[in-house]
């Protein structure tokens, strides 16, 4: 019902809904015969990305987060698990975000938390992309009943309010970090499957017109090679913004206790857990929330910049 032809779905950051138009910087870097000039593409892309201050800011945040996650063992002053001092200490030089009721260093927990957050954010979207692309290609390529059934099922997933579906899946699977990745991947698969399916259909039509013949099975590989570069741009943008969305969902699920299990340092869970101390130590409680905001902001800014860089229409 939301596959209504002609229905325009404008690109909106953080809803992760990206229009499936293949028009992109990649297209303009095609040479005759569909070969791609990678160097041209990259430099063009990089130049337009660099022009946007917000995109650069987003990229910086994302890179810093990745570095923090990778080097958490080195930069975190304390363990995320063992008490480092007395409980509920106010922020100080030694404990920049104070300590939690068990005496653990909240700053260190926030640092280690980047690992969990990035694992869930990146992991779920990679999984969704990896499952969504073949699904979309097959649906578009084989058409008929497979297309009908798989796309109806995608519609069904999209007919649920996303968060509600994620909750139901988590209750069924039981709370754990791996299950969060799975649940968030499931709710995101339709987005990618559809983008890819749309491109397959477009290419199929083009081939049909150009070659005046129907597409046969031997063209399957060719199709794959044609389609993927074609929809790479919307896929990348959609994936980046989906990461931001997945991180928000993870925080919400953890807040409801449906996410990672303690003592895993999950920002949403820590915030909920320490809420009882809000009146006594407000900053200790709020700190993980600020980390969530910064991370989501980073991916959103970066995703925005990517879209502007990849989509010639919005490029100024």
């Amino acid at each position: 019902m939301r596959t209504e032809p002609g229905r325009r779905e404008p690109a909106v950051a953080s809803t992760g809904q990206v229009d499936g138009k293949p028009a992109s910087v990649l297209e303009s870097s095609y040479r005759n015969g569909g070969e791609i000039d990678h160097q041209n593409m990259l430099s063009l892309f990089w130049r337009s990305l660099r022009r946007s201050k917000t995109a650069v800011a987003g990229l910086v945040i994302v890179v810093v987060l990745v570095l923090v996650a990778l080097s958490a063992d080195v930069i975190a002053p304390n363990s995320y698990e063992d008490p480092a001092g007395p409980g509920l200490m106010p922020p100080s030089l030694k404990f920049p975000f104070g300590t939690d009721p068990l005496g653990r260093d909240i700053f260190s927990r926030v640092i280690y938390g980047t690992r969990v957050t990035l694992f869930v954010g990146l992991g779920s979207i990679v999984l969704a992309v990896v499952l969504g692309i073949p699904l979309g290609v097959c649906a578009g390529y084989y058409g008929s009943w497979f297309d009908l059934i798989s796309m109806r099922f995608m519609d069904l997933i999209l007919a649920f309010p996303t968060f509600l579906l994620a909750i139901v899946i988590m209750v069924i699977l039981g709370p754990s970090t791996a299950n969060v990745v799975l649940a968030l991947a499931v709710v995101r698969i339709p987005i990618f499957a559809r983008v890819v399916r749309g491109s397959v259909l477009a290419v199929k039509e083009q081939e049909f017109v150009e070659g005046a013949r129907s597409v046969s099975a031997s063209d399957f590989r060719l199709l794959f090679l044609h389609v993927l570069p074609n929809c790479l741009a919307p896929l990348i943008v959609s994936a980046t913004i989906s990461i931001a969305f997945a991180i928000l969902l993870e925080a919400n699920l953890s807040f409801l206790g449906l996410g990672s299990q303690p003592p895993t340092p999950s920002w949403g869970f820590d915030l909920k857990q320490n809420l009882t101390s809000l009146a006594v130590r407000p900053f200790n409680v709020v700190a993980p929330g600020l980390a969530i905001m910064a991370t989501v902001l980073g991916f959103n800014l970066f995703g925005d910049g990517l879209r502007d860089a990849l989509d010639p229409k919005t490029r100024k």
Binding site: N252, F255, G268, L271, V286, G289, I292, M293, N300
Partner: peptide, 22 residues
């Protein structure tokens, strides 16, 4: 707008409570 988009609802709610109520 960007900050608003990047704020989880529960955190936004808590900040509003801190500011407007408490």
């Amino acid at each position: 707008a960007m900050v608003g988009i990047s704020t989880p609802e529960f955190f936004g709610g808590i900040m509003l409570v801190l500011f407007f109520s408490l």
